[in-house]
Design a protein around this nucleic acid. Structure first.
Lengths: 233, 233
DNA sequence: ACTTATTTGTTCGTATGTATG
DNA sequence: ACATACATACGAACAAATAAG
């Protein structure tokens, strides 16, 4: 069945093969794809047919399919990889924000393998906001760690962490070895720590606390689609 | 690297009017627009030039501009209105999630006028999740209020609230009159209430509590771009 | 109240770039 | 090197909502 531009022009707005009239094509196709995922036609982690094939299947232009997939990707339902294909994303993970939230624990309890990869590390001078939260003077040397934390290899959040360079000399190497912020801190004799403040914006910024002295400031950017933040008061 | 597209033909790869080469056009244009907003060229709440005009200004196709604007709209920097234009969004509002968070108070303290508009109200039978949280049997009649809360007329969040139909007979009218959930509850002799649980997903669901008896369940969907949720523990 | 122009939204088409396997 | 698949960019036409006259 072909749906050329001409054919669509003749079709009255109230007679449509898809559910509702007055809804744009790409929305209906996005719905169709999402329902197919829900029904298990496309499995979690599985690959969707190519854009051209989907387009042919629905009898629409490839761009229309792209618009639909783009909407799903935006919501984290699927993930498009250039040169490879489009894949169904895994379901979100509940991420409770408590004073003693540990990434590794949460992921582990969900039956997934937690890990962290160090993207970059450098020594920087303490800056306005970070310095204030860490209660150190501006200019004090800090270690800045950019990490990517993942569950079962799927990236969940990117975090930037600042620590005192004096107290945590080679935090980078220790983190790489331990793959865990908690274990890294334990290596430096930080037995316990708690979250002091959490801002949820497009990301998440938290300050942790040990022995009543702020030891660490971190900014974490979650994949909003793959993580569900839970706050209990 | 060959750059053959018509609009780029006069532009050598190393002499670029925009910052970095190797970055897609729409990204650079999105950056340009955002910087213009930051520099005050386009004012908050103000209107952007039409897509065609922007396209002409950058010497690109309208779709490229649309892609850029779409990216900005996704992040809440601008808001496109069909038939009208594209407008610069107002800055986000910090929204602390505490046990005694009151929408009106928060907005009021930010120096803005808080209000709520009743979109719809109906009597429904208690349902699985809502019934469980309200600790009532399924089937018990509830009043369901769909409200849109705004600051200075700008919609900030859409909330769906469930209350006991028996205890809050005409909640809808009272809410319309008072424009505030707190004042509405006060009218029914609920002097104080606190949040019991908050889930942050794509939206926000909270349960409030008075006299140790759950009186209200609500699901709130925030404009993630206009609101910044703040959690302090 | 109606018409017209403007503006964003959708859909198709075509071509090319770029990463993957 | 090659085919495949997604990404970017251009162009054209029409739809739909809004604003202006």
């Amino acid at each position: 069945m072909k749906r050329s531009a001409a054919a669509r022009r003749e079709r009255p707005p109230d007679a449509d093969e898809f559910s509702i009239a007055g809804v744009s094509l790409w929305r209906r196709i996005a719905d169709e794809i999402e329902h197919s995922i829900a029904r298990g036609v496309f499995k979690q982690g599985g690959k969707l047919p190519g854009e051209i094939e989907i387009a042919a299947r629905f009898g629409v232009n490839r761009h229309t399919v792209r618009r639909a997939i783009s909407a799903l990707a935006e919501r984290g339902v699927v993930r498009a990889e250039r040169g490879s294909g489009t894949y169904v994303e895994t379901r979100p993970l509940a991420y409770p924000i408590r004073r003693r939230t540990r990434f590794s624990e949460i992921v582990g309890e969900a039956g997934r393998a937690a890990g962290g990869r160090l993207i970059a590390s450098q020594t920087v001078a303490a800056d306005g906001d970070v310095a204030r939260r860490l209660k150190v003077k501006a200019g004090v040397p800090l270690v800045r760690l950019d990490t990517l934390r993942h569950a079962d290899g799927v990236p969940l959040c990117a975090a930037t962490t600042w620590l005192s360079a004096e107290r945590f000399p080679d935090a980078a190497r220790v983190y790489t070895a331990s793959q865990s912020m908690t274990r890294m801190l334990a290596h430096f004799d930080v037995r316990d720590y708690a979250r002091r403040r959490t801002d949820v914006t497009a990301g998440l910024a938290d300050a942790a606390d040990a022995n009543s002295v702020p030891v660490l400031v971190s900014r974490t950017r979650f994949a909003a689609d793959r993580v569900s933040l839970v706050v209990e008061t």
